[in-house]
């Protein structure tokens, strides 16, 4: 992957066209997670902590092997463990690595009002720029996968970057590098789709998983993190992977069809204040509140 893949394709809260967008299409990156060969060892969790310099946080036992209930502002990569009984009564221990899905149509980016706080690179990575983040948390509402998390200390939102810093240098993300079984793969979207389809076919034909398939949800335009699932018809059992994720309609409406209404409201608000000033003059503080003692 070259530096060029970090050309910006989309940008949050920005009026007008995106500089350089659409001029050329570089290869889009993709992470493939084969849940059928994941052993839940959490090497990816630790690699993520180490590469990104994330701080230790105290956890408690949750009646599960799962490290914590969901990803955190300082824990971007979490394996979700679920005991699932199949129709024939046999048990499955489903282990799914949960992290940012790097949507083709990212709801977080759409929802973000801060200029440049969320960017989508030409290679498909959706990245948060914390120096531009205003901590409003709209991105959290915009995400159908419950990924961005607010840090009360920093008053900003954080999530997986797909190791954009490593990827620019031609390296795979830290989680991929650490995976001992090779259930994690990294490459172009086309390559990963092919590999995923191949594995899903193998699972259907040789391992008795008739509904095995690939998770690359179209509701968000596809994702740059895709899964092979034993049963693609029921992703919810993998720790709440949404069957048909969409950017929430409120965000969609507000940021797209109704954006003019918001803009109008802002204009109307400013105009209202001006008219108020013309009509009533400057705002004054009533006598009884001036210098009064409680």
């Amino acid at each position: 992957m070259s530096q060029a893949t970090l050309e910006i394709r989309a940008i949050s809260g920005h009026a007008g066209s995106v500089p350089g967008a659409g001029v050329k299409r570089e290869l889009e990156v993709c992470k493939l997670i084969d849940t059928t060969t994941c052993i839940g060892c959490k090497a990816c969790e630790v690699a993520c902590l180490e590469w990104n310099g994330l701080t230790f946080s105290e956890t408690t036992f949750q009646n599960s092997y799962q490290t914590m209930p969901e990803t955190a502002w300082n824990y971007w990569n979490l394996i979700k463990f679920n005991e699932h009984e199949r129709d024939d009564g046999s048990l499955m221990l489903l282990m799914r690595k949960d992290q940012c899905m790097h949507c083709e149509e990212p709801g977080c980016l759409a929802a973000c009002p801060a200029d440049g706080a969320i960017v989508q690179y030409a290679n498909g990575i959706v990245d948060f720029q914390q120096d531009r983040c205003i901590g409003c948390g709209y991105c959290i509402t915009g995400c159908p996968f419950n990924i961005p998390k607010f840090s009360p200390q920093a008053r900003k939102v954080f999530k997986c970057t797909l190791c954009a810093d490593r990827v620019t240098q031609g390296l795979e993300p830290a989680c991929i590098k650490s995976c001992p079984t090779g259930c994690l793969h990294f490459g172009t979207k086309a390559e990963m789709k092919e590999l995923a389809d191949h594995r899903a076919t193998q699972l259907r034909e040789h391992s008795g998983f008739a509904k095995a398939g690939v998770y690359d949800p179209s509701g968000v335009g596809g994702t740059h993190v895709i899964y092979v699932l034993h049963d693609a018809s029921d992703p919810e059992v993998y720790g709440g992977l949404p069957a048909d994720p969409h950017v929430p309609w409120t965000v969609q409406l507000w940021k797209k069809p109704l954006k003019w209404l918001g803009n109008l409201a802002i204009v109307a608000g400013v105009a209202g204040v001006f008219i108020h000033y013309l009509r009533y003059g400057p705002k004054t503080v009533p006598e009884d509140l001036q210098g009064g003692k409680p």
Binding site: T36, T37, I39, G40, C41, Y65, L91, M92, L93, L94, M95, T181, G182, C183, R199, Q202, H206, S207, G208
Partner: peptide, 26 residues
């Protein structure tokens, strides 16, 4: 895992507990 992926090898796991190894077994 390679044997399963490349040779369609079968895996039987026998254990007092359904372990993370069992999770990938046939």
């Amino acid at each position: 895992i390679e044997a399963k992926r490349n040779r369609n090898a079968k895996m039987i796991v026998v254990d007092p507990r359904f372990t993370r190894t069992a999770a990938t077994a046939d």
